[in-house]
Design a protein around this nucleic acid. Sequence first.
DNA 1: TCATCACCGGAATTTACATCA
DNA 2: TGTGATGTAAATTCCGGTGAT
Length: 247
Amino acid sequence: MEQEEVGLALGLSLGSSGHHELKEQPSPSSRSWARLEPSLSLSLPTKDSRLSAPVRIAAVKRELPMEEDDEATADRALYSVASSALVAADDDEGCNSRKKLRLTKEQSALLEDRFKEHSTLNPKQKAALAKQLNLRPRQVEVWFQNRRARTKLKQTEVDCELLKRCCETLTEENRRLHRELQQLRALNHPHPATFFMPAATLSICPSCERLAGAPATTTTGADRPKAGGGPGRAAHLFSPFTHSTAC
DNA sequence: TCATCACCGGAATTTACATCA
DNA sequence: TGTGATGTAAATTCCGGTGAT
């Protein structure tokens, strides 16, 4: 991005004359900046300076020893400087705050469209999209980062809700199994007068590994979790006399 | 093989702004 | 109409992973 574009994008026309150490300013990428900074001995105009932001950025560009193919790093550095200039602009007005970009509906829509296609961008795509949107590549990059974060958060919420429902289902299944267990125990230790099935007939079905010994009327495949052989396994009750291979 | 560097993305956090009671 | 609480999203910072040299 040309320095003039940066200045125009920021809508800045600052008056300034002083200088400000670059490393004191926050940047979009502190690591990139930290790697740049040691090689720099330049100082930047501050809020007190009388240079316009584009001029200041141009000054930085002259002093930054960058390769032409290092546009991403350059962009971050320039953005950092531009941000600094913006802060300086506010300071000029006695308001030490950064301005916040609000994307237009058109910009948001296009970003969303691109995100639907690819949730990440390569440098060329980023630059092209930035140009198309009249934004800085760094802004596009940040938007995609935040968008991915929002997507992940949304998915986490969905997963959480699913787990919650699953937990409720399992809890209910657990209650039901406890009731059945009590019934089975009653069968296993019946009063002599009401005895009708010997304890020995309660067994595990060899084919499905489910407990046998009572009618298989309470548990169906529909009301059990499909996977994993959960609580439903032991609850599948059947009579060894009526059990078939359908089990 | 190891060290260093550059780059990128994720996570956490900060901050500006909009909305609403 | 002014104000504080709150939510949202842009921006920042830090950190770890990875590939190139």
